[in-house]
Simulated scan of single mutants.
Amino acid sequence: MTHNGEGLEQKSKGPLVYRQSIWTRLTHWTWAICLFFLLLSGLQIFNAHPALYIGQQSGFEFDNAVLRIGAVNTPEGPRGQTTVFGQTFDTTGVLGMSGSAEAPQYTGFPGAVTIPSFRDLATGRVVHFFFGWIFVAALFIWFLASVINGHLRRDIIPKGQDIAGLPADMADHARFRFQHRRRYSPLQKLSYFTVFFVLFPLIVLTGLTMSPGMNATAPWLLDLFGGRQTARTIHFAVMVLLVLFFIVHVIMVVLAGPLNELRSMITGWYRTSPGTAAEQGDRP
């Protein structure tokens, strides 16, 4: 006999399904580690020249900067200043000038968010390139495995019904109504598709475009992105978009049930919503 309390508890749980393959899980955590080091080492590299331009050229004689971070002297003393598309903002304590009054840091981004935490462009580049190639290798492994096991076709590439169901799914997410199913929702599919097939390729290709060696091997990259400076600006913008995606991704994981979501990405097993039938191919 099953006690009433136990019966209610069992009814309150949906089926446990195998959602994430070992390849998805391994590459997911590899990307998380790589992107952490790529972001912080990338900011170290950016600090060597904290400005972004559009076009082939840059320098003091050009006025094509779309972003500039630095410190300026004012009647009140040095202040951090950030200029975005001609609009200037005081960013003292965050960008351009940070640290304590006794030991101010005159860098674009503060040392707390760079690797290394002190000015060391050479080490920053070594760290950046090391994790960059690991990132690319993980992307290749994920793509190959996802084609073979059907993850790409089944869970990433949006289909007609996904596009049709997108408005309703967006409304559900806005109201924090989450359906825990074996397959990804339309909004998840569109988000992951954008990351894997737009943002990831863009950040890799623009990174390669900034390499003099790649300029000699594949000069068409310079034409594709409108020059090294434009590629650097796109690279930075994509980094910002990936950071925003990460923030939203973590928020969604917390709101949807962090233990269930983390179990799925660690063990592969995922608890679906009550009344959700296990789809074909799922294991109980």
Results as ranks from 00 to 15, higher is better:
Trp133Glu: 04
Leu255Phe: 14
Pro258Leu: 09
Ala48Trp: 15
Ala174Val: 09
Ala164Pro: 01
Leu244Met: 14
Ile45Met: 14
Ala137Thr: 08
Val147His: 10
Thr82Asp: 09
Leu39Thr: 12
Gly59Tyr: 04
Gly80Tyr: 03
Gln87Pro: 04
Asp223Asn: 13
His249Trp: 02
Ser146Arg: 02
Phe131Asn: 00
Phe37Met: 10
Gly213Val: 01
Leu8Asn: 08
Thr209His: 03
Glu9Pro: 01
Ala218Asp: 03
Phe178Lys: 06
Trp142Ser: 02
Gly111Ile: 12
Ala103Asn: 09
Phe37Arg: 04
Asp63Arg: 14
Arg228Asp: 10
Phe130Gln: 00
Leu52Glu: 03
Leu262Gln: 06
Ile45Val: 15
Ile203Leu: 05
Phe140Asn: 06
Leu139Arg: 07
Ser12Glu: 13
Phe197Thr: 00
Leu67Cys: 04
Pro110Glu: 06
Phe178Leu: 06
Trp220Val: 13
Ala168Leu: 06
Leu242Glu: 06
Glu102Cys: 05
Thr91Gly: 04
Val253Leu: 14
Met265Ala: 00
Asp90Ile: 01
Trp269His: 11
Pro274Arg: 03
Gly111Trp: 13
Met210Cys: 14
Ile115Glu: 02
Arg283Ala: 09
Arg232Ala: 13
Ala103Pro: 07
Gln44Ile: 03
Ile134Ser: 08
Met252Ala: 13
Thr83Cys: 12
Met214Leu: 15
Gly86Ser: 08
Asn215Glu: 10
Gly77Asn: 10
Met265Pro: 00
Leu224Ala: 11
Phe178Arg: 04
Gly14Gln: 09
Asp155Trp: 08
Gly59Gln: 10
Gly5Arg: 12
Gly108Phe: 00
Trp29Thr: 08
Leu38Gln: 02
Arg271Cys: 01
Gln81Thr: 14
Gly227Leu: 09
Gly132Thr: 01
Gly165Gln: 05
Gln161Tyr: 11
Thr2Ile: 15
Lys11Met: 14
Thr2Ser: 12
Val72Arg: 12
Asp63Ile: 13
Ser146Cys: 03
Leu39Asn: 03
Thr82Glu: 09
Arg125Leu: 09
His235Val: 13
Cys34Asp: 15
Arg79Gly: 12
Leu152Ser: 00
Ile115Cys: 07
Val147Met: 15
Thr82Pro: 09
Ser146Pro: 02
Asp162Cys: 06
Phe46Tyr: 02
Ile266Tyr: 00
Asp63Leu: 13
Val254Ser: 08
Thr217Glu: 12
Phe225Lys: 12
Phe62Ile: 04
Gly165Pro: 00
Met214Lys: 10
Ala48Val: 15
Ile134Tyr: 07
Ser21Leu: 00
Ser58Thr: 05
Ser117Gly: 11
Tyr184Met: 09
Gly93Pro: 02
Leu221Pro: 03
Phe129Asp: 10
Lys13Arg: 15
Ile247Tyr: 04
Arg183Thr: 11
Thr27Asp: 00
Asp282Phe: 00
Arg119His: 07
His28Met: 01
Glu76Lys: 11
